[in-house]
């Protein structure tokens, strides 16, 4: 089953007070940032801090993601050299525009894994798409590596690139969201929506989360722990959905017991999509204790 990624919580990589126990907020993923939230003079200290944290702090099994600087900057390579050794679950590449961006970084990660006796391929990757070019290349990016577990929209840079700005309704993002979502689904990886930066505007945030959930996104990048509960609440299935899902699963188990090839519930046939949806509902409801595969 796919890993839940409803909330990917940003934490600035140079802030020990936040880094030391960010897990208490129980997001689905923690994303340590070495990129935009870190000033040029502190890139090195953030790198050391995140590396030490990954090695020493118990993040209680929550997925750890590190957003590194791009390889086109003087920090990208040094970030990888330092961070891959500390073995986060995922390396997130910012401002991805082409599949080559991914392959280039993958090669470096593979080399570092090899040098440090880490099984090659263990480190997963995530790509943020933040430009028109990236959006148009979304599918080729999404399918560029086996390591890639998801793609995310980074809207702040993207709308600037489009020569517009963000609106509450988000019409300017409709294409990018659709494109990224379809690419992710076609590649069978996660699709994560962009951040919502006005922390005080809970109403607006709720509307946006409901919107992207309806579009089909797996979740959202978030910048404040206060936003976590809201996302989880909106993604939580309704009691009726849970009840139905439980019935579906019971029907499957019943059919398995009876060795019956055809599964039906209340006289209706249950096919694969219905089973998948039921499983996802139960996962979102936190009821399911079924095995979770790592990564995908």
């Amino acid at each position: 089953m796919e890993k839940l990624r409803r909330t990917m919580l940003y934490v600035p990589g140079n802030n020990p007070a936040m880094i030391k126990d960010i897990y208490i907020y129980q997001p689905d993923s923690i994303m340590f940032d070495l990129e935009d939230s870190i000033s040029l003079a502190e890139k090195d200290s953030a790198r050391f801090l995140v590396s030490e944290a990954l090695t020493n702090v118990d993040y209680l099994g929550i997925e750890t993601v590190v957003r590194v600087n791009g390889l086109d900057t003087e920090f990208g390579l040094a970030d990888l050299e330092c961070i891959v050794k500390a073995q986060p679950d995922v390396i997130r590449l910012p401002k991805t525009e082409t599949s080559e961006d991914i392959s280039e970084m993958e090669a470096i990660i593979a080399r570092i894994e090899l040098e440090n006796n880490i099984p090659v391929g263990k480190t997963k990757m995530f790509a943020a798409i933040e430009s028109a070019k990236g959006v148009l290349n979304a599918y080729s990016i999404a399918t560029s590596s086996k390591r890639l577990v998801g793609i995310a929209l980074g809207a702040e840079d993207y709308v600037t690139n489009l020569r517009t700005n963000r609106s509450p309704e988000g019409i300017e993002l409709l294409f990018a969201r659709g494109q990224i979502l379809n690419a992710a689904r076609a590649a069978n990886i996660s699709a994560i929506d962009t951040i919502y930066s006005d922390i005080e505007n809970e109403e607006g945030f709720r509307r946006e989360v409901e919107h992207i959930k309806q579009l089909g996104f797996d979740g959202k990048s978030i910048i404040n722990p206060r936003q976590i509960d809201i996302v989880h609440e909106i993604y939580a299935p309704k009691p009726k959905e849970i009840e139905y899902a439980l019935q579906v699963i019971a029907a499957i188990q019943q059919a398995e017991k009876e060795n019956s090839g055809v599964i039906s519930l209340n006289g209706k046939m249950i096919d694969k999509p219905i089973v998948e949806r039921a499983e996802r509902v139960l996962q979102l409801a936190g009821i399911n204790d079924m095995e979770q595969s790592d990564g995908r």
């Binding site: 020990p16 030391k20 200290s45 801090l49 944290a53």
Partner: peptide, 17 residues
């Protein structure tokens, strides 16, 4: 009141610099 991982990171950064 830094935890060990922070002390270690800060010292390593200072030495690196």
């Amino acid at each position: 009141g830094a935890l060990d991982f922070t002390i270690s990171a800060r010292l390593k950064t200072a030495l690196f610099r």
